[in-house]
Design a protein around this nucleic acid. Structure first.
Lengths: 148, 148
DNA sequence: CTCATGTGTATGCATTTGCATTTATATACA
DNA sequence: TGTATATAAATGCAAATGCATACACATGAG
């Protein structure tokens, strides 16, 4: 067959990936909003930066980690910086580049977000799966974007 | 524990759900765009409407099927209607409501999209999983948004 | 060294999304 | 029946996203 045709099982997995993601994501975003907290993406970025501390991360590294589009990351960082959660400074090794580091306020925000986020994950995902299921699911999903 | 804490496996599954979805989705959207075709959401909507033919679907039914936000669906339908792929008509049973039906042109578009979409699904998902994996993955993901 | 090409990041503009609210009809119940 | 509440759908406005491009610096070839 010329255009490689995915099997029914593959199509079903893809459709459910969309649906499951939409359902879970909307639960999580809704709960964050209800708690007057910023969106999920802020948490993800802050977490990566906290892990990378104190060296910080280059925007393109963060971008690859988060699988974000370049212009989206650039603007996400704009907002984080404007809110005082991230510091942008010029890279010393690369004249084009920057280094991002998390600020004290960024750390604090991430910590405040966690309890709400955690409860949302539990509601959206945890409550539907056994421990074994979760391991299997994580493993299979990981294959969809592994680098090799 | 008061704020129900998700296990590590659950958190990992959630994070990978986000990442895998982002990766797959961007592949699919990119390929559609490269082929000068409209976004994924158009396909999904057209497919549901085609399945529901000839009775059509109420917007809120389509919305639930696709797990779309109400205002997003309303505007998606605006675009589909403006492009001539969908017909909006007043519901006879419910004075508030409408009935959506797919047009000939909508059908044709869905058909033109399928080969590109299929190849994209295969690339984004199929090429990473065995048949058995796909079945398992689909099953697990289905649990995340099942109604009961 | 110089030029062609590649990489890191930002940005103007159009489109889409999110939020809050509005409008209209339906339904339940006092 | 009349009124409160719920449901279907649209919409104005603000924010985020996508796209194409711009700009600055890096790197490699000759």
């Amino acid at each position: 067959m010329h255009p490689p045709a995915p099997s029914d099982a593959i199509v079903r997995a893809w459709v459910r990936l969309e649906r499951a993601h939409r359902a879970a994501q909307s639960t999580v975003e809704m709960r964050l909003k209800q708690a007057n907290l910023p969106p999920l993406a802020w948490y993800d970025a802050l977490l990566e930066l906290e892990r990378a501390d104190p060296a910080g991360l280059r925007p393109f590294e963060l971008q690859k980690e988060m699988l974000f589009a370049q212009y989206n990351l650039s603007r996400l960082v704009d907002r984080l910086e404007a809110a005082g959660h991230v510091l942008r400074s010029a890279s010393e090794e690369d004249g084009r580049g920057q280094v991002l580091t998390i600020t004290r306020s960024g750390r604090a925000l991430r910590q405040r977000m966690w309890p709400v986020y955690a409860a949302a994950i539990e509601a959206a995902v945890g409550s539907h799966l056994s421990e074994t299921d979760a391991l299997t699911l994580g493993e299979l999903l990981g294959r969809l974007y592994a680098k090799p």
